[in-house]
């Protein structure tokens, strides 16, 4: 599907979906991400369910990031495929104080793996680290799970603005990497440290994120 995109063009177009149970903070993450980069006037335009962001990649190419929020209610679970169809990345968000939301993430992962295989970049996001004392899922548990399914794991706090930018920068990198692996000729330009392959996962990749993110601080906010 995504092969139809005008890949040769200078602007890369990436689509990422936010999946997760209701009230885990999907929208808050997007809002926090956009708020820091955009002035509030732009934010106040209308909605937070769909945002686009132009970023500059390390190789000076420009990319557009489309982040699609999805409805988290259980009744809409079946509609997931419509959203993640053709997407390059997926953020699976759960609430670290809510065991159920983590289970939901697991079910999403299963579904995505089944439907999209390895052609989609997965990041599991444990949100609400500001509620550390109420934590229900330990960092290790989540990380271990992420490793087993070949996904990245990031913990964030949308409220405290902790790790949000890093999360989206990691997402961008992953998607660029996926895109590059699809277009073999481009791989050289997209050398990520430790080269994230589709199947292989680095256990401590989230530790690398800040370093990578630093290189991408030049993200322009238009």
């Amino acid at each position: 599907m995504s092969s139809r995109r005008p890949g040769a063009g200078p602007t890369l177009n990436f689509k990422a979906v936010l999946l997760g149970e209701g009230c885990v903070g999907k929208t808050s993450l997007v809002l926090r991400y956009m708020e820091d980069k955009f002035n509030t006037q732009h934010l106040s335009t209308l909605q937070a369910s769909f945002v686009t962001k132009k970023v500059t990649l390390p190789d000076e190419r420009r990319a557009q990031l489309n982040i699609w929020d999805t409805a988290g209610q259980e009744r809409f679970h079946a509609l997931g495929p419509i959203y993640y169809r053709g997407s390059d990345g997926a953020l699976l968000v759960y609430d670290i104080t809510d065991q159920d939301s983590f289970q939901k993430v697991k079910s999403w992962v299963r579904e995505l793996k089944q439907m999209r295989g390895s052609e989609i970049a997965l990041i599991i996001v444990g949100n609400k680290t500001d509620l550390e004392e109420q934590r229900a899922i330990s960092y290790e548990t989540a990380l271990r799970y992420a490793q087993t399914v070949g996904a990245q794991y990031v913990e964030t706090s949308a409220k405290e603005n902790d790790g949000v930018n890093e999360l989206f920068e990691l997402l961008t990198q992953l998607m660029v990497a996926h895109h590059g692996s699809k277009q073999q000729n481009d791989t050289n330009a997209l050398r990520l440290q430790n080269s994230i392959s589709e199947a292989g996962v680095e256990p401590d990749l989230d530790e690398n994120v800040p370093a990578v993110a630093a290189a991408h601080r030049s993200c322009c906010g238009i």
């Binding site: 599907m1 139809r4 995109r5 689509k15 686009t52 489309n66 509609l79 419509i82 959203y83």
Partner: peptide
């Protein structure tokens, strides 16, 4: 329509939502 149009952009997002609304 150009596939990229449905896959990205505001129109694509809303259209996808419309599709899922009908699926629902």
């Amino acid at each position: 329509t150009n596939a990229s149009r449905v896959m990205s952009g505001e129109g694509g997002y809303y259209f996808t939502n419309l599709c899922s609304a009908i699926a629902f």
